[in-house]
Design a protein around this nucleic acid. Structure first.
Lengths: 222, 222
DNA sequence: GCAAATTAATGATTTATTCAAG
DNA sequence: CTTGAATAAATCATTAATTTGC
């Protein structure tokens, strides 16, 4: 359904400077042996899925020395549900469950640290990358939003009882589950690039994590 | 799939795991001594601007062993223009110049590798982070777009000559400077997290960069 | 039963908007 | 008022559910 729109008109030719690169499209075929490195405690991914050489960028590994805590295959129900081919992330039941717990707990736009934390934990149940976590929250939030909107519109349009028909939209309002507001503190993944405080974070987990309340501010939503 | 559908009505109370985090808002006050580490060749930033301890997360450095190519103070015109206070990036003339070159060369949404490359290069002229480069392209693209739209609308609305009034919008059309289309290959910064192929990239710069054409595909624009 | 065809979900990207520093 | 930074909305694309004809 819905084929791609239509290509823009341009025909562009070259990049002035010789920057080129590995096409992500292709890369995505390679599993790109996730976490392991930066992740801290319990990582579970396989060392490297061969085939990773399909992907030019991933080239050589990089400081493999660093955290060489490369266990062998995962633990729980390992592969099976973890995108075997290596394309896009396919969350397992447990992963979804945990993610939803966070969501219900109020997490909407986790910052880099949170993302990595969550990623590490979820990696217990299958391969997963930080970006998957990030995207999940993005999408989940957006889709809850549109679902709610759709509902409210539906209710507004459909004639019958605008009265409280029990809790149809449950507690998705008020109380804890607010739109998002706080947490704008989320920094971006590039932080890893610049100051990879993550590697060191390992030892300060608790110390750091307790420094700030999860919802430091509440006003200033947008 | 589709299972978890309505696990929602839960009541979650606490975040099972004790995730909390460091607020980015605060962090951004700290310069967070950029690149140095990951960057490859010619890095120029100062080792670390002290004051970085304002930021809780940045804690200790991290594998300083890895690329210890930490030169001392920059070279060209060092600090001066590089956000002294430490808030947001304030590009120097040279940086803008180079960025525009890339833009005119056709770069719109550089991928992680490109970003880092560019960042390294630009860091010659002042402090800069990968995300600055990313945002610059995002904003520049968007604003060129809206500028163009505004112009075309303006022309459409204002009665006079819809004929070619020379090149008002210069080469922002056709030829080299197309909208964006390709380059969807851009991967996200999280890649650094997962597979930090960057560290190794240093030695394979040319090798890797020449593997793929910049605009591998042309259809499927959006 | 089962595999191709279709549809529904949802992961991943890009674009549009908004916020706010300077 | 320009523009760096960040978020939300829209869109694309792939996977799994499901339907359908055999």
């Amino acid at each position: 359904m819905k084929v791609h729109q239509l290509t823009r008109e341009g025909l562009w030719e070259h990049e002035t400077l010789s920057f080129t690169l590995g096409c992500k499209r292709l890369c995505s075929l390679a599993p790109k042996n996730t976490n392991t490195d930066v992740s801290t405690i319990t990582t579970t991914t396989t060392p490297f899925d061969l085939k990773s050489f399909i992907r030019p960028e991933s080239g050589s590994r990089k400081f493999g020395s660093l955290v060489d805590n490369k266990k062998d295959p995962p633990s729980p129900k390992d592969q099976v549900e973890t995108h075997p081919g290596g394309t896009r992330w396919n969350p397992t039941q447990e992963q979804i469950k945990i993610l939803e717990m966070f969501y219900k707990g109020g997490t909407r736009t986790p910052n880099t640290q949170q993302i990595e934390k969550i990623t590490v934990q979820l990696s217990e149940y299958g391969r997963i990358e930080g970006k998957n976590v990030f995207y999940w929250f993005q999408n989940h939030k957006a889709r809850e939003r549109q679902k709610r909107k759709r509902n409210s519109v539906g209710l507004a349009l459909s004639p019958p009882t605008p009265t409280f028909t029990s809790s149809i939209t449950f507690e998705t309002r008020g109380g804890i589950d607010q739109e998002d507001s706080p947490n704008k503190c989320r920094s971006w993944a590039f932080e890893y690039l610049e100051d990879q405080s993550w590697a060191s974070c390992k030892e300060e987990d608790h110390k750091i994590l307790e420094l700030f309340p999860l919802h430091p501010e509440l006003g200033k939503s947008r």
